[in-house]
């Protein structure tokens, strides 16, 4: 495993296989928490934080707990428990030791347990059989891709608030159509050969 491979892995996780626009993981927060750019950025940062740590934690749980006992089929249960516990733990840790970061990310943290991006990155890491370093880099860069998507989209939505769509399209539908156009823009990355 050399540096170039890691870099390629990260590039592909951020842009080519963007979690939102090519894999559809994490669409709920993407559509739900993207009304203002700064809340979107906060959510993105919280997800990045949790996904990086959970990538490492679930990798360790899988490798040293599930595989030795032949319990691979319990991975979904185990991972979701690890993620829920981790989110709770991170929340307590931040509140105790880094109050500034806690007040910035606090309200988003409980939402992350049910963010499918986190669980799916853990499952993908197992599926692709990544090493520990790859797992951490993958978790981090996939979350970075999520942050990029949600922040860009929040910027678009802030502009869209001034638009006057037909009545039936107001609210959610026009948001989805904008997301579709943004997905078209992102799909140009899928032509990139790595």
């Amino acid at each position: 495993m050399n540096f170039t491979d890691i870099l390629l892995l990260m590039f592909s996780a951020v842009l080519v296989e963007n979690f939102i626009f090519s894999r559809f993981y994490g669409c709920c927060p993407f559509l739900g928490v993207s009304e203002k750019p700064d809340t979107a950025l906060g959510m993105g940062m919280a997800v990045t934080f949790v996904m990086t740590v959970s990538g490492a934690a679930t990798w360790a749980v899988y490798r040293y707990l599930l595989v030795p006992f032949g319990l691979e089929y319990l991975q979904t249960v185990a991972f979701i428990l690890v993620i829920a516990a981790l989110v709770q733990f991170i929340e307590m840790f931040l509140r105790r030791f880094i109050p500034a970061l806690y007040s910035a990310l606090g309200i988003y943290l409980p939402l992350i347990t049910t963010n499918c991006a986190v669980l799916s990155s853990a499952l993908l890491i197992v599926q692709e059989d990544y090493s520990f370093l790859e797992a951490v880099c993958f978790g981090f860069s996939a979350a970075l891709g999520f942050t990029l998507a949600i922040t860009v989209f929040a910027g678009l939505r802030a502009r869209m608030a001034y638009a006057d769509p037909p009545r039936a399209f107001k609210g959610f539908p026009i948001t989805l159509i904008a997301a579709g156009l943004l997905a078209m823009a992102f799909s140009c990355f899928s032509g990139v050969q790595l």
Partner: peptide, 21 residues
């Protein structure tokens, strides 16, 4: 492809909103 998913869902929900209206 992914863009079509967003677009289709957008139009379907718009139709539902129209009918509800």
């Amino acid at each position: 492809l992914p863009p079509g998913a967003f677009l289709t869902l957008g139009f379907v929900i718009a139709a539902v909103q129209k009918l509800r209206g």
